[in-house]
């Protein structure tokens, strides 16, 4: 009985008695969720337009952030001043590097592997992951780096709100990140739905062959999506780096994007966002209220279990396209 009480009643009593803690936990979940959603967004972009399950998205985030910080340091070393000029130059150069990466991936990895089964393309992105880890460590060294915060004029500090008799503190950078993420998703949605290239992307996603036959260049489309995913990766990297530091550990966090994906559906941009938030909030709430019962650290697998339970009821995810089996 005691155990049942602890599982089913006590957490809700706690939520009721100290709502400020609940709001704080929800906010933290939301913040974590936005990060997952951003990584998932990169996955979705590439999956939608080429059917490739891009395992390298996590390392692309690290790579983009490392390149940015590395270039910034180089520019400062050359005496580029003031700092914000160097920071924005580095940002522009990093975007160029991501374009180069997209182009290289299309040329060297995707093009020779056109028309192969999904799992082969999936494995190729594994190869890309290893390659990027190696190159990143060779060029920038394996030690964690601090993100450039002041020179990019990212907001710092915290805002405190008084609610329900307690107070909730929100980091300004988190608020900024949430706003930027929403803007980015809105921009991507408009891009996909309204522009010419967006229509071409959707055509490619439906059928490579049919798209080719109406004159859409697969190569161009793939460079564009990988570039878009690269920019999303850069934004994610800056946002993550500002919170902790830029290191290869982020790669494991990127795996958290997978339950987000299956929750939201592999092909849905809103799905990635909603899934990310559900996973982030669910994880934090679970860890905070039920974690002590099981011993801490349940965060590491709770997301997957939430996703698994969802899958049993909706195998295609929340917003995924219905899977129709044909013989």
């Amino acid at each position: 009985m005691d155990l049942l009480y602890k599982i089913f009643i006590d957490p809700f009593v706690q939520m009721g008695t100290s709502p400020d803690l609940l709001v704080q936990t929800l906010w933290e979940g939301l913040v974590a969720g936005v990060l997952y959603a951003l990584i998932a967004l990169g996955f979705v972009l590439i999956f939608k337009a080429s059917g490739v399950f891009n395992f390298a998205q996590g390392i692309m985030v690290v790579f983009a952030a490392l390149t940015f910080v590395g270039l910034y340091q180089v520019l400062r070393g050359w005496g580029v001043s003031p700092g914000d000029v160097a920071a924005y130059c580095a940002l522009a150069l990093t975007i160029l590097v991501m374009l180069g990466l997209a182009y290289g991936v299309e040329r060297l990895v995707l093009k020779p592997l056109v028309n192969q089964p999904d799992i082969i393309l999936f494995m190729a992105t594994f190869g890309l992951t290893y390659f990027l880890i190696g190159v990143g460590e060779l060029v920038f060294g394996g030690s964690p780096k601090t993100m450039v915060i002041e020179d990019l004029h990212l907001p710092r500090g915290a805002v405190e709100f008084k609610i329900f008799g307690g107070f909730v503190s929100l980091q300004k950078i988190d608020i900024a990140a949430t706003v930027i993420a929403s803007l980015m998703v809105a921009a991507l949605a408009v891009f996909f739905q309204k522009t010419r290239i967006g229509r071409a992307l959707r055509a490619v996603a439906d059928s490579h062959k049919a798209a080719l036959s109406v004159g859409i260049s697969l190569e161009q489309i793939w460079v564009i999506v990988w570039f878009a995913a690269g920019i999303v990766a850069l934004a994610t990297g800056i946002r993550w780096g500002a919170k902790s530091e830029v290191s290869f550990a982020l790669q494991i966090i990127a795996l958290k994007a997978l339950p987000v994906l299956i929750l939201g559906g592999f092909t849905s941009i809103p799905g990635a966002i909603v899934g990310g938030i559900i996973i982030g909030v669910g994880e934090k709430i679970g860890e905070f209220y039920w974690g002590p019962l099981l011993g801490s650290g349940i965060e590491s697998w709770l997301a997957y279990v939430i996703a698994l339970v969802f899958l049993l009821f909706r195998p295609q995810g929340l917003f995924g396209e219905r899977i129709i089996e044909r013989i």
């Binding site: 594994f126 190869g127 890309l128 290893y130 060779l138």
Partner: peptide, 14 residues
């Protein structure tokens, strides 16, 4: 070694 493993996987798959 990481770089080589990565390149090797891709080359093999191709």
């Amino acid at each position: 070694t990481f770089v080589i493993i990565g390149v090797r996987i891709i080359v093999f798959l191709i």
